[in-house]
Design a protein around this nucleic acid. Structure first.
Lengths: 155, 155
DNA sequence: TAGGTCCAGTTCAAATTTGAACTACTTCGA
DNA sequence: TCGAAGTAGTTCAAATTTGAACTGGACCTA
């Protein structure tokens, strides 16, 4: 290991802000969803990604990749959502070992009901606090960071 | 609930980038610390905050606030670190019910050993990917987001 | 077509995290 | 000086998360 290059003041400020904001926003939304929709954040995210997908269905591995969590975590959370009747499993017709998670009508309704309050909170804690220029830089800068790691994670 | 104001393209891009980057960076650092230092991210963070504090000690509640986690979570992780000999508990002399977590010499040494590789990874995944202007906007924008929520959390 | 290697998901045990009691001390206010 | 409310941490059970092993097919390749 060579000489470490420590972070200067600006770098440190960017780093700590990023970490703190990430954690606090997470917690705020976790609470909001639990209180107002009775869903955990991972559960809500699963519903969102399914709703976005064509036919409201996605393979388990695809879900794990999008939620940035482990395969077993997805198995568990999809099982929870299945108990709630919000998601259904469907064997993949071609790939024998494949499984689709499918959004049910009830899941879709639940998501529609939960979304407005969730979006309102997202605005309140993040979006509406920033101006357009800041949003643009965030989108661009963190977009690059995310894509680099995503590519690396898949490799 | 009034009409929800949905997110426009820019807002949505900022939001999803923020969430994805947050999760992926977290995971990358989690792995790095576990592999190269044998510490979990929360454990590492505790050591960092203690090292920053005067006399290397902090009250349990103060740690919980800085790590943005629950009180019981701190009790648990400090217990883990105590088993490893990296942290020690000390009764607070004045407030009878108070407890300090204190960084031990061994904890301090472990942190010094772990820091260079950790910083290198932080640079690799986030800092060195961005230019100075982007870092400045990140620090400013997310700084505001974090401080607002921190104030709210304490209230 | 036998044997090897991947793959997609699941299962399992262990570690962690959470919130809700609970414990004991402190601090007020009457 | 009594008792009600607060504080600071801990404990506990339940929920979640993780990685490692496992399962059963699919896909080579000789």
């Amino acid at each position: 290991m060579s000489e470490p290059r420590w972070l200067d003041d600006l770098e440190m400020a960017a780093w700590t802000s990023f970490v703190e904001a990430g954690h606090r926003v997470d917690r705020a939304l976790e609470r909001q969803l639990k209180d107002e929709a009775g869903l955990s954040h991972p559960q809500y995210e699963i519903l969102v990604h399914l709703a976005d997908a064509p036919d409201g269905e996605l393979r388990m591995a695809e879900l794990a990749d999008r939620l940035i969590t482990s395969k077993s975590g997805i198995t568990y959370q999809v099982a929870q959502l299945e108990k709630l009747g919000l998601v259904r499993r469907r064997a993949c017709p071609e790939q024998a070992r494949g499984v689709y998670a499918v959004l049910t009508d009830e899941g879709s309704a639940r998501l529609r009901g939960a979304a407005p309050a969730h979006v309102a909170r997202v605005r309140e804690v993040l979006i509406d606090v920033l101006d357009r220029e800041q949003l643009a830089v965030l989108a661009e800068a963190l977009g690059v960071v995310g894509r680099r790691l995503r590519a690396h994670d898949r490799a």
